[in-house]
């Protein structure tokens, strides 16, 4: 399982950070950092992203 953030599409707005219930995402200037240890793969980040830059791979 993993969360893939497409750096080409991402506009670093932090929308995903705001809806992540476990604070597994962090906006760091021009980078979204994802913490695999915290992530619960709920999919909120993928759904809310205004730029379609996040894919949650559950397999």
């Amino acid at each position: 399982m993993s969360v893939k953030i497409d750096k080409d599409k991402c506009i670093f707005c932090g929308a995903c950070v705001g809806v992540c219930p476990v604070m597994a995402l962090r906006l760091n200037n021009d980078r979204i950092e994802w913490d695999a240890d915290k992530c619960i793969y709920c999919g909120n980040c993928e759904k809310i992203c205004p730029a379609n830059a996040i894919k949650v791979e559950k397999k």
Binding site: I11, A15, G18, V19, R26, K47, I48, C49, P50, A51
Partner: peptide
């Protein structure tokens, strides 16, 4: 700290800033 609203959650004082997705707009 704006819509990301992590500081209140870091504080762990019982203030949950997360709501269902229906209570947000996604803007571009």
């Amino acid at each position: 700290d704006g819509a990301e609203s992590r500081v209140a959650r870091m504080a762990g004082v019982g203030i949950n800033t997360i709501r269902p997705l229906s209570e947000y707009d996604s803007g571009y």
